[in-house]
Amino acid sequence: MSGNLALRTIETSAAGYAPRRTNTQLAVDDLVAGVESWWLWSTLAWQDIRQRYRGSILGPFWLTISMAIMVGALGFLYSAIWKIEITTFLPYLTLGVLFWNLISSLINEGTSAFIRAESIMLQVRMPMTVHVLRSVVRNFIIFLHNCVVAAAVLLIFAVPQSLYSLVSLLGLFLILLNGIWVTLLLGMVCARFRDIGPIVSSLTQIVFFLTPIIWMPDALGNKFWVLYLNPVYAFLEIARGPLLGHTIPMPVWGMAFGVTTVGFLVTFLFFARFRARIPFWV
């Protein structure tokens, strides 16, 4: 009989339930709660970095050293191949590699953002956005390590800077902002389809060669327009150009803001639709 009584209680209190929130509202809730718990994702990101320092004094500086070696070797070789002064080419290459490393690690670690978080996700309720921001912040911290190389090169070659150089910070901000939707989208897709992660990393390698990093856009001559098919170029140029005294052309700005807007819209639709499925995918 007690069972029947319990049932009646639920029926009478059924009106007391808050109306079920829609998927869109829940997705917004997740994003807001995720961003608000900044101390959570920033601490988790730092914990990841400390993990890399553990058992190794240099930690992520290994990546910085390998970047310095790569830039040094490629700089001498390619300035000879392209017949460009090393004083022009090496700063260009260094900044290109610096921002490219950030972009490519955002993409590649984005693919595993949710898969890596499996053990947390299945134990504790936490906004999905936290896992995304953790990945973005971790890559930003590693980027800061690599900045040492770029700063050294800019100083050694005495690349002139002006107030316009600060536009580069906007470029960096745009890269990180886009890192959020890229991580969220790839994190979901790659949790659901496990073979997409490796495909993404091969594609990223191809994009490295298609993007003007080890070559200069001028080399394209009248085929310059092909760069406007490559969204990575826009972000890279806004971050790199100002530090080299290049003015950013309007189409590049348009492309960067367009990609940011469309990226967030598409990702949000996916997120609203599939957010609740993520724990079953990981």
């Binding site: 914990q47 553990r54 053990s119 996700m121 134990q123």
Partner: peptide
């Protein structure tokens, strides 16, 4: 709510 669902509880084994 606190949940003790898994002995690891999302712990970082190297920490």
């Amino acid at each position: 709510v606190n949940a003790l669902l898994n002995i690891g509880l999302g712990s970082d084994p190297d920490a």
